[in-house]
Amino acid sequence: MAQLVAIAGVPHNPLLYRVTRNGIPEDIQATMHHFEHFGGRMRDLDVDSMVIVGSDHFRRFKHDHSPAFAIGALDHYETTYENEIRHFGFDEWSVPGDAEMARALLGDHELPEDVDFAMVNEWVLDHSFSMPALFLRPEWDIPVVPIHTNTNMPPLPRAARFAALGAYLREAINAAPVERKVALVTTGHLATDIGGPKGFLGGPSADAAFDSEAVGWMARGDLAGAVAGCTVERLVAAGNVTPQFMNFLAGLAAADGLPANVAEGTPSRFAAAPFFFWEVDE
């Protein structure tokens, strides 16, 4: 049987790639240290499958449609869109997919009770998925199961639905009839505004009060507080892409609402970078 052994919450800021190509600038070192630490713990725990909960940024799911929740069922993924090369200086990467785990999470003939997943059989992954995969495992050799959540195109699933997603993933991963040690990687933002008036602040948070409260939910294991606090209105007021924070609620719920071993909003030249980590004892 598979076993969920670690849960991480990390950023996917694509600008980190370019600024770390020729050495790591001083203000980025704490951010990269967290990635290395989490990746190192995943190595120690012999993780051989990563379920990544992130939000595609209008690349695979555009304004014509975006499922609330979708699972990739491929056994191989290409990453990188042409405009990610132009905008972010990306290379093109590929990563194996854990199709067996994806099928186990989707259910056989019926979808699970609590989460309505769309199944995705054609998917080039964008930076929501490629950046966590790259920074946690630069060898690109651990199969992934990408799970897209619609946190960018309102109407969005409510916060409680992300908690339900996390609780389901914990149960379903541990019940999957495959031999795996699984890390659940969630990725999103603290208070972040892209293309709006709170953007471009050059380091300070778009909403320091939100960041403090949000990190506190993770540090204390306050799932009920997080669900109550994450209304779409409050999240958008903290910055137009802050709703991506809700992906971390899936991590907190999968951790059974326990306090995170690591919970931090790491400062740098960019918006505060979210880092949350739980080791799971079963």
């Binding site: 940024h57 132009r86 905008h87 960018n152 505004d193 892209i194 293309g195 953007g199 471009f200």
Partner: peptide, 29 residues
């Protein structure tokens, strides 16, 4: 959507017009 708009504007102003990032940011903002 601001995310799409920012990248569209950057592709035109910064990459093709050659506007500096700081000037672009000030103007866009």
């Amino acid at each position: 959507h601001p995310y799409l708009l920012l990248h569209f504007a950057r592709a035109l102003d910064v990459v093709l017009d050659g506007t500096s990032w700081s000037e672009f940011v000030a103007r866009y903002r």
